[in-house]
Design a binder for these strands. Structure first.
Length: 571
RNA sequence: CGGGGCGUGGCGCAGUUUGGCUAGCGCGCCUGCCUUGGGAGCAGGAGGCCGGAGGUUCAAAUCCUCUCGCCCCGACCA
């Protein structure tokens, strides 16, 4: 490809719409342009990268007996009503009607469609396992699209669905996908760490997310350097340290006036206490029923854990009126003493001696509140959000915290969808049985964004060879010099003939401009052809990642490039 | 949805508070000269109904009302 003809509009300045480095660079390098909030047009360079990632995914999916299909974007409402998710999905689903008023949605995912397909076609255990995948645009009307491809409303996703006859089969499918994912991300030149995760709206119990650890990540991850335990903060288990009951002296319970003092930080400052001496009392409505959740003052409640523990569908913080009704005080003064709703407490609450709690009375707190003597807890559970430094639930070592970009997730769905939608087959013994399903997603665009987050410098993107839009750019310093131009075209043709993806920068620009563009776009290898070296019969081979310059005889350039490409030297 | 901010040429911005003459600047773009090892220089040029609608006024980018879009924080989220 000639640079003069390549549609790659690079920008000198950073568009103000972009916050993240990956987003900025994708715009500046001319990989894509925004068409609406959370929706992007891929330009030639961007599309080449996307296609390369897709191809790697294809190869690895095919290698684990995956078969590619392509399902429509527009899906009928009926199948979503069957699974119950038509209502569950809420505003996040793009909905539309056809001319006859029939309802459809733009598929946010494809479990329903694939299940509906397979249930009418697959009748026997002999046809299992079946692993189908597709690479398709998906649509979610995100509350807040942001960070370019990181959280779009339209995004490209690979999803595979597995159908097995039993748990054992599902287990095999699950781990096959898990290991394929390890290979995929490695091949894309980025380290993605599997972490235990929550399954969210998809359902199912066993699930791992593949996280690229990066500051820009939207997820919090806890991991243990000693034993390798890693989990999303949504999932990370808190442990009951099983300490002996606190053995200090219990002071008499006492009410203190705390005018205008309601947050933990304010209370601590006012009473000269530490947050871990406090108990935070949160009033929730669980399917409309009020409950109180207690956590230590320096801890955060994990709502996912509380919802699971209470086994409720809707869990929300109580509104102000409810809080006044239940506690007798405005927000900020709730406490467990004398509170007449079920009290669920995180394990850590057990070990607080002489706690500071709200008095259930405006502008007042209680000090020296003690479990059993002053209040009873309905049940203790793991309810808090695990923090860095907390003990690892497997080995007890201190957990490290990190941010992560979720590039993929694997789920064991079990029979949630097959049961709801009546997708069954006949077992060997003739019994009609629902499929045991799994699903496995990879965000293609998000993976590209994550790769850039991890592979860039002040000058631009540094593509891993495996997904670089082109491998090599040839830059003659001046196209006015016939010797340079001739040498450049000759090398260009030689590389093309050798199957190397190459761009020739034939623009009549000053060298600085061409170098800057080459660095910004991130070609792994640059060949500079200048008058000085050319006189000596040499060209310069520049490695993008290291900026290393090698002056080589013209005749050995091809071999040197081949070696780099095949050796994966860049990666 | 709550809070904050922004819409002025392709990109980045000034001008808006305190209405006033032809709406500016840098980058990019076009033409010519010149230049060619890290985003050169000179000269000339194109390109903007100031997001949109309505209103106030002799006069609106600027004031008022409504509206659309975008970004950030939060809640939310395979």
């Amino acid at each position: 490809m000639l640079m003069s003809q390549l549609y790659a509009p690079t920008l000198r300045e950073t568009p103000s719409e972009a916050e993240l480095v990956s987003h900025q660079l994708m715009l500046r390098a001319g990989l894509m342009r925004r068409s609406a909030s959370g929706m992007y047009t891929f330009l030639p360079l961007g599309l080449r990268v996307i296609r390369k990632v897709e191809q790697i995914i294809r190869e690895e999916m095919n290698a684990i007996m995956g078969q590619e299909v392509l399902m429509p974007i527009v899906q009928p409402a009926e199948i979503w009503q069957e699974s119950g998710r038509w209502d569950e999905y809420g505003d996040e689903m793009f909905r539309l009607k056809d001319r006859n008023g029939r309802q459809f949605c733009l598929g946010p995912t494809h479990e329903e469609l694939i299940t509906a397909l397979v249930r009418s076609e697959v009748r026997s255990y002999r046809q299992l396992p079946l692993r189908l995948y597709q690479i398709q645009n998906k649509y979610r009307d995100e509350i807040r699209p942001r960070f370019g491809l990181m959280r779009g409303r339209e995004f490209i996703m690979k999803d595979m669905y597995s159908f097995d006859k039993d748990e054992e089969g599902l287990d095999a499918s699950y781990w096959a996908a898990y290991h394929a994912y390890e290979r995929i991300f490695k091949r894309c030149g980025v380290e993605a760490r599997p972490v235990e995760a929550d399954s969210g709206a998809i359902g199912g119990d066993v699930t791992h997310e593949f996280m690229v650890l990066a500051e820009a990540g939207e997820d919090s991850v806890l991991h243990c350097l000693k034993c390798g335990y890693a989990a999303n903060v949504e999932r990370a288990e808190g442990v009951d340290r099983k300490l002996p009951a606190p053995n200090g002296e219990k002071q008499p319970l006492q009410e203190v006036a705390t005018p205008q003092v309601s947050t933990i930080a304010q209370v601590c400052a006012f009473l000269n206490k530490e947050p871990q001496d406090c108990i935070k009392t949160l009033i929730y409505l669980a399917d409309g029923r009020p409950v109180a959740a207690l956590v230590r003052g320096d801890h955060n409640l994990n709502e996912i854990k509380l919802r699971k523990f209470l086994n409720c569908d809707v869990l929300e913080l109580a509104d102000e009126d409810t809080i006044v009704r239940i506690t007798g005080a405005p927000v900020g003064f709730a406490g467990p003493v004398g509170l007449d709703v079920p009290l669920y407490a995180d394990y850590a609450v057990k070990y607080i001696l002489n706690a500071v709690v709200g008095a259930n009375k405006q502008d007042a707190h209680l000090i020296n509140a003690n479990l059993d003597r002053d209040f009873q807890v309905t049940e203790f559970a793991d309810l808090r959000e695990v923090q860095p430094g907390d003990p690892c639930p497997r080995c007890g070592d201190a957990l490290e915290g990190a941010r992560g970009i979720e590039v993929g997730q694997v789920f064991k769905l079990g029979t949630k969808y097959s049961k709801a939608m009546g997708a069954t087959f006949l077992q060997e013994n003739g019994v009609e049985t629902p499929f045991v399903m799994g699903c496995y997603g990879i965000g293609v665009g998000r993976t590209v964004a994550a790769v850039i987050e991890k592979n860039h410098d002040a000058d631009g993107i540094i593509w891993p060879i495996s997904i670089a839009p082109y491998h090599v750019i040839i830059v003659p310093v001046s196209v006015k010099d016939p010797a340079q131009t001739e040498a450049a075209y000759k090398l260009y043709q030689e590389l093309q003939a050798a199957g190397i993806e190459v761009v020739l920068d034939d623009r009549d620009e000053r060298p600085g401009v061409k170098f800057k563009d080459a660095d910004l776009i991130g070609f792994p290898i640059r060949v500079t052809i200048g008058p000085k070296s050319l006189e000596k019969g040499e060209m310069e081979l520049v490695i993008r990642r290291t900026k290393e310059v090698r002056s080589l005889p013209v005749g050995s350039i091809l071999a040197a490039i081949r070696e780099i490409l095949e050796g994966g030297e860049q990666e």
